Amino acid sequence: MRRDTILWVLLAILGVACLALVLNQDGRIVGLGEDEFASLVYLGTIGFGMAAALFLFSRTGLGQALRHLLVWIAVFAAVLAAYAFAPEMIAIKDRVMAVLVPGSVVALPNDGEHAQYLVTRGADGHFHLTGEVDGRPASFMVDTGASVIAMDTSTARSLGFHPDDLSFTNFVQTANGVARSAPIILDSVKVGDIERRNVRAAVTESDGLGTILLGMSFLDTLTSYDFRGNRLILTD
C-alpha cells in the first residue's frame, strides 16, 4: 500500500467523523455520545497511523522513512488539536445548527447551576422553537404578550383536546389583541431539556394562530429569558 493511499484513507476517516459530528443533532453517534465518539476517532486514528507507519518504515530507507514520519507527525498534531478543542468545535456546531435549522433549541455551556438554551430569530422576526406538549412534538413561537400558552382549535385537536368539549368563556391577551378562549391545563411542556408540569394554557376560539404561542405561563417559570439581538437565551 502506497503512502499516499494510506494518507488519503486516514483523511477520509477524519472527514467522515467530522461530518458526523457536524450533522448530528441528537447528541449520539452510532450509540456513543459526541465526546465518546470523538475520543474513539482520536484513538483509532493514532492506532491506524502507528500501524501504517510501521508498515511503511519496513519497506523504505531511512531518509524516506524520516520524511514519512514528518508527514505523520503533522497529521497527528492536527488530530490532537481537533480532539483537544472538541468541546469548542461541538459548541460551534450547535450554534451553526441553531442558525441553519429553524426551531433548533441549542444547549449552551453553563456553570453547572442553571442549564441554558439558545434560540435564534427566524426570518419573520419571531423566535420559533420546537419542543413537546404532553409528550407530542410541538412548534412554538415565543410571545411575551401572551399571558398563557395559547393555541387555536386545530392545534389543540392535534394534541388530543376536543374543542367541542371546551368552554370558551374566558379571554386571553395575545400580541394580536384579546381573543375568546377556553382554559386548559397541559400536563407537560418541554423545550430543550426544560420541562414544566401542569402549565396553564388556553385554546382560542378561532383557527388563526397556526402555531402555539409560548406565553408567560411558561416563561415566568424560568430563571430568566434574555433577548440579545437575534438570539434568545432561556435559563432553566
Rank of each mutant, 00 (worst) to 15 (best):
I185V: 15
F168P: 05
V199W: 04
Q173C: 04
G215W: 02
P183E: 12
L209G: 00
L209Y: 04
L213Y: 06
L213P: 06
F218N: 01
T174S: 10
V199L: 06
Q173M: 09
V199Q: 04
G210F: 05
A175I: 12
E195W: 01
D187L: 07
N170D: 11
K190F: 07
A175W: 09
M216K: 06
L209K: 02
N176K: 11
S188C: 09
D187Y: 08
D187K: 14
L209M: 05
L186D: 07
L213V: 08
L219C: 10
G177R: 11
L219N: 07
T221P: 07
V191Q: 03
V203Y: 02
T221S: 15
A179K: 14
S217F: 00
G192Y: 01
D220K: 13
S206T: 13
A175D: 11
P183L: 14
A182I: 12
A179Y: 12
E205S: 08
T204C: 05
V172T: 03
T174D: 07
L166A: 08
S217K: 00
F218V: 05
R200H: 09
I184M: 10
D220Q: 14
S217A: 06
N176A: 15
V199A: 03
P183W: 11
L219G: 08
S167K: 14
I184C: 10
L209P: 00
G215T: 06
V203F: 01
S181I: 12
R197Y: 07
I185F: 10
T211L: 09
L166D: 07
V172A: 01
E195G: 02
L222C: 12
S206E: 13
